[in-house]
């Protein structure tokens, strides 16, 4: 019995590593940078790193839900910029908190719009949200008149200066949202539907799941997350650049895929996404500390992404062979 046990346990361990490879990546990168730079493993630097990574992280929370459904949202960067601009621009006319709420609603509304068009037209979400990416950026420029908006009441920028130990408000919000939505994925009906829809849409439909309504909800969540990130960005910077968040949608997708969530849907988790976001942040921060030119960071990212893809392929082949 025990003879048969050992290899089985080894296989299970191998499976665990295959399915959670991102944490191995993360541990490796942390170890390497800790040795390479004395500044890396300091509370101050790690706090900074988390704050920097949290914006992409919050976008990635919403993106993970959409990708688990087998869809994609390219418009999150533009939505972030719009919410950022609204949160600052509306303050003088309607007050600080109403402006923040309006920014949040704008993000939710645009997510809802994306979801409605995807669900009702049957178009590929890549096309729909590519259009939205271009159009929402247009909205941002129309609203800001291509100038950066400045906050007038500097008390607003103080909000983001809340710290819990080394953790900034932004990082706290990221971890809070990731935990909340991970709980939602594992413990609620909507969460389980998210997997069922992305995994085997025919089976989900036959089981009576309203696939269209379900996807609309997840796109709305994704837009809302983008708005949250935009509002936090406006608090942190005190300005709203019309070009804020440009190509962040691509970084977000990279973070999610790096974590191990599968683009075809049905497989992944926010736990993995957190790993992907942190690895991305550690790489960027660590390479910068080492004073490597910034091109190394970009090239390493490309390489790591391909590696993640190859690992995922290996996992699929293994499961297929069973």
């Amino acid at each position: 019995m025990s003879v048969a046990e050992t290899p089985r346990r080894a296989v299970a361990a191998g499976d665990w590593i295959m399915r959670n490879h991102i944490w191995v990546f993360l541990a490796l990168t942390v170890a390497v940078f800790s040795f390479a730079s004395p500044y890396f493993l300091t509370v101050n630097n790690l706090g900074n790193l988390l704050t920097q990574g949290a914006f992409i992280g919050i976008l990635a929370v919403g993106m993970t839900l959409v990708i688990l459904n087998g869809e994609i949202d390219l418009s999150v960067g533009a939505t972030l910029a719009l919410s950022c601009a609204l949160a600052i621009g509306l303050q003088t006319s309607i007050g600080t908190w109403p402006a923040v709420i309006a920014a949040l609603l704008a993000g939710a509304g645009l997510g809802l719009l994306n979801g409605l068009v995807v669900a009702l037209s049957g178009m590929h979400s890549f096309v729909v949200t590519l259009g939205a990416l271009i159009g929402i950026r247009g909205l941002v420029f129309v609203y800001t008149g291509e100038n950066a908006l400045m906050v007038e009441d500097f008390a607003y920028t103080e909000i983001a200066e809340v710290y819990l130990g080394p953790l900034s408000l932004t990082a706290l919000v990221f971890f809070g949202l990731a935990a909340a939505f991970q709980w939602l994925l594992t413990n609620t009906r909507h969460g389980r539907e998210t997997y069922a829809v992305g995994d085997n849409v025919a089976a989900a439909h036959d089981a009576g799941i309203n696939v269209k309504r379900h996807k609309i909800v997840n796109f709305t969540i994704c837009g809302t997350m983008a708005a949250v990130a935009g509002i936090l960005l406006s608090m942190r910077l005190g300005t709203a650049e019309p070009n804020a968040g440009r190509i962040w949608e691509l970084w977000t997708i990279i973070a999610v895929v790096l974590g191990g969530t599968r683009l075809s849907g049905g497989y992944g988790s926010l736990w993995m996404t957190v790993g992907g976001v942190l690895t991305l942040a550690v790489l960027r921060n660590g390479l910068r500390l080492l004073n490597t030119p910034n091109y190394v960071e970009l090239m390493v990212m490309g390489g790591v992404l391909l590696l993640a893809l190859a690992l995922d392929r290996a996992l699929l082949t293994r499961e297929g062979a069973r």
Partner: peptide, 10 residues
């Protein structure tokens, strides 16, 4: 996407 990042670096 990886190529996009890689070429930017290059």
């Amino acid at each position: 996407l990886a190529m996009l990042s890689f070429l930017q670096g290059l």
